[in-house]
């Protein structure tokens, strides 16, 4: 079977309202997919449901034709904003080592091979020199690289990145894109959510266009049609002389456009 990863008729909600309805999708092994859509479209909701942070209301998520196991190392997930306590007494090395948790046995110290995976992950993200630094002493970009390194240390089949390009410095953005390139050789399936439609079209194999339901998925040229974009972005899109322009309010500001449960998704 070539489809690594299938979502069948998936519905997810907060409270009594559904944030995603009847989404069906399949992603080929090792593909790199950009998930796009307006604020509140359910991009983060999709990721959170995939890692078990939100209960699934209907449908199923299958990996290799089997139901997604709860937890473990199949999926690594990096939320848009890490909700961690930055004053916690842990070093960069400690945080990246947490990525090995699922591989380790109880009460055993970090094995030599686990340690090597951690060091390689730090190296790959260009933060090997910071490994003994307390986590609270890092810049925002360095912090994001620590969490990318931790996700790498998990050695996942699927990597989910929620808005990795929002609010980071140029160096971290380039480092993240380099990392995505490097992950191709490791056949890691990557899903990222982004507001950057240019980036989605130019750097990713496939695009998924969401607005609470699946509008279109496939090659960027198939997905980014005027009809699809109008369907997804509605009033936020204008067509000028045959060219579509999406007026997308990234990340806050116009929350009245995304009422109710969708607000959590911004």
């Amino acid at each position: 079977m070539t489809d690594l990863f299938e979502i069948n008729d998936l519905s997810v909600g907060y409270g009594s309202r559904l944030a995603l309805e009847h989404v069906t999708l399949s992603v080929a092994h090792g593909a790199q997919v950009a998930v796009v859509g307006p604020n509140g479209a359910g991009k983060s909701t999709l990721f959170r449901a995939m890692v078990g942070l939100l209960p699934i209301r209907g449908g199923e998520i299958l990996i290799h034709g089997q139901a997604l196991p709860a937890g473990g190392n199949v999926i690594a997930y990096i939320p848009q904003r890490e909700e961690v306590d930055w004053r916690f007494p842990v070093t960069v090395f400690d945080v990246v080592s947490m990525g090995r948790h699922g591989w380790r046995r109880r009460l055993r110290p970090l094995s030599r091979s686990d340690r090597q995976v951690v060091l390689d992950s730090l190296e790959r993200m260009g933060i090997a020199g910071l490994s003994q630094r307390p986590i609270g002493q890092l810049s925002g970009g360095q912090q994001q690289r620590v969490f990318l390194a931790r996700a790498l240390a998990q050695e996942p089949h699927i990597l989910l990145l929620d808005e990795p390009f929002t609010g980071v410095d140029v160096a971290t953005r380039e480092m993240t894109l380099d990392l995505l390139g490097g992950l191709r050789s490791l056949s890691v399936t990557v899903l990222i959510s982004t507001h950057d439609l240019d980036l989605a079209a130019s750097r990713f194999d496939e695009v998924v266009l969401l607005n609470r339901r699946l509008i279109s998925a496939g090659l960027p040229s198939e997905v980014f049609t005027a009809d699809h974009l109008r369907e997804a972005f509605g009033g936020q899109m204008v067509v000028i002389e045959g060219k579509s322009i999406v007026v997308d309010q990234c990340c806050g500001g116009h929350e009245d456009l995304a009422p109710g449960p969708e607000r959590r998704d911004s």
Partner: peptide
């Protein structure tokens, strides 16, 4: 340590 520092990681790790 994991659930105290990063509860979301704890939940995704099962």
């Amino acid at each position: 340590l994991i659930v105290s520092f990063d509860p979301i990681l704890g939940r995704t790790l099962g």
